[in-house]
Simulated assay, not measured.
Amino acid sequence: MKIVLVPSGFKECIDAEKVGLAMERGAKKFDDRNEIEMIPMVDGGEGFAKTITKTKEGEMIYGDVRGPVGDPVTAHIGIYVENGERIAVIEMAAAAGLKLVPLNQRNPLKTTTHGVGELILCALDYDVDRILIGCGDSGTSDGGAGMAEALGVRFMDDLNHTVKINGVEDIIKVRHIDMSQLDPRIADVVIDVACNWTNVLCGEKGVARVFGPQKGATPQQVDLLSAALEHFANLIEKAFSIDMRLTPGSGASGGLGTGLVAFAKATLHPRFDVIKRYIQMEQKIKEADIVFTAEGSIDFQTPNGKIPTEVARIAKKYDKPVVAITGTIGKGAKLNYEVGIDAFISIIPKPTSLQKAMEHASKWIEGSMESVLRQVTIGYQMAKRKPDDEKVS
């Protein structure tokens, strides 16, 4: 049997490559004669830079930057050369991911993307021609203002004093934007951003209301966050004559998509479109007997550009069955049947705490993979049975 594994990571738990290796162990445990192709996938979040850089046989660069709550964190970028271009790969989660925000400090009014700007500066120091930025797994909601500040943008109050951006709440004090000290090297690079195309900056479906609670915001803080991002959109419209409020991808990573467009002249792309350009998978899916994918949670949001359903859409072009291995099965998970996932299974074998589930995730993924393959094989055997062989009651 030809099995293709195209897993995503389990957020704050285990990255895509480790998920894939656990799935591979489970498949071989069932039958080591199976032909297995593992393609770890990243949706712009954790593992994005390492996965693409490894695929392109590039080099990882490490350094300390300001983390989302102000403390130094060790982050990274990838550098590789292709078609005569030097390309840097950045994942915003390395500098401003939710994993870097302690549970007792999860207030998106007080987190910053400053470290993301520092990673961009690092890439510029390596004289790159192009920067690819992955937006995902963010712990911030500052509209990319912190990132812009790191690049040299100054935010001024009504007395023309500089406002330091330590979180989106500081944006409320800003009255105009000073671009005079922006790093001039930004103008010489192409910046592509892989993001969730359905995320927008403002409105009832804006990033504050949709993702603010996931980042620790109370209902009152969600209202403040929404108002601050609306004010930010007004500032950007006044400064650059662009309306980012409902632009597809503008709400990516707490509005970082907006900041990258406004201050770094970046181009936003649906994340899976970008990933497909850098990680070739379609031919392998086409040749498979069955495709397995994985995600930390399957729910009503999964069809909105997340890896399992994007993998399923490719597989259905070639009429390939798709099974998703998941940590949790959430509200509206059945919607995924409508977009090409034929079955999904949770790895959790019994009631447990989140901490224990995370500790045992690798082992449980392995066991779930073996179990699913046993069930799939039974189905194949039944389908291949001739009518004459069936018992007649």
Rank of each mutant, 00 (worst) to 15 (best):
A239C: 12
P308N: 01
L268I: 04
V200Q: 12
A208Q: 03
F300E: 10
F300Q: 02
V193T: 07
M244C: 13
V210T: 08
I191C: 02
V261G: 02
I186M: 15
T218W: 09
I279P: 05
K215Y: 10
A217S: 06
K238R: 14
T302R: 13
A208V: 06
C195W: 09
E287Q: 15
H269E: 11
I298K: 07
I290G: 06
Q283V: 00
H231G: 11
A227T: 11
Q280H: 14
G296A: 10
I298G: 10
E204F: 08
G254L: 11
S226H: 15
Q280W: 05
A262F: 07
I236L: 15
G296L: 13
G257R: 05
N234H: 14
S226W: 05
F232V: 00
P219H: 06
L224V: 14
V274N: 01
A288D: 02
G305V: 04
F240M: 05
C202N: 12
K215V: 09
D273A: 14
V200G: 01
R271S: 14
V190E: 15
E295D: 12
P248R: 02
P213S: 05
F272N: 02
A312H: 02
G296Q: 10
A312V: 12
C202D: 09
T309D: 07
I186Y: 10
G251P: 03
V222E: 08
I307S: 06
V222T: 13
F263Y: 12
G296F: 10
G212I: 10
A239F: 03
S241M: 06
N196M: 11
L235M: 08
K238Y: 11
V190D: 13
K284V: 04
V210R: 11
A264P: 00
L229S: 11
A227W: 01
A208P: 09
K215C: 07
I275W: 14
T267A: 12
L201H: 06
V190S: 14
G212S: 07
G257N: 06
T247K: 13
Q301C: 02
G259V: 03
A266D: 08
V200D: 00
R185Q: 09
E230K: 11
T293M: 01
T258N: 01
L225Q: 03
P213F: 03
D183H: 14
D273Y: 09
H231Y: 11
V222M: 05
T218H: 08
V311G: 06
